[in-house]
Amino acid sequence: MNGIIEIKDVWKKFPMGKDRPGFKEFLVKLPQFLSGNSHSYFWALKRISFKIEQGECIGIIGKNGAGKSTLLSLILGTIYPTKGEIQVSQKITPLLELGAGFHPDLTGRENILINGVLLGLTKDEVMERIEAIIAFSEIKEFIDMPLRTYSTGMYLRLAFSVAIHTDPKLLLIDEILAVGDEAFQKKSKDALLHLIKGGATTIFVSHRMSAITEICHRALWLDGGEMRAEGIPEKIVEEYLRYSG
């Protein structure tokens, strides 16, 4: 088995500066900043190493600020590690923040097109699927209206629908199973489960332990930027719950 994702001793630090450093401070710190040796920083992630195989579903748990989202962003490639190496050998479909590329003044249809391409399809491929996307989102009658007229639920349903129709091979999910009303939640969960069962590699961050134990094959517990434990979901979740009381 070859790893789809290999993370080798990854560290990530963020600078902790004031919003407006002031001119003198700016000049003094400029060389430091440019060379990357800022004095005030904190380590969001420390010595993270793991491997994910094709078709695996990994759950990541931990308190707020434990580094879960940073880890997802590193795997996605929107941020770079300070130290260490990350190898990803698949196209990634992020479900980090639904509708990140949506624009309120464009219509639903225009947003589908631009987001489908941003998430990895060609324009023709989006056009082939556009009817399916609209049907899944259940907002056919509003599809040619600007997005700013949508309710939050409609907005999220459309965003989810676009993402799910991009043939994801590698899914990054950050707590989004609760989209729309009861019926749509079930529908979206079924669609995701269908993808995961169908062999899409998945990394899933959640605070809902039942979802982790239900879906995932393996769980990682992050604590203060470090990997605290790794193993079968039931065991890790139990440890985590006992620890956090």
Partner: peptide
């Protein structure tokens, strides 16, 4: 910002 942080392109 949201585009740059959440989608890779």
């Amino acid at each position: 910002v949201s585009l740059i942080k959440k989608i890779r392109f």
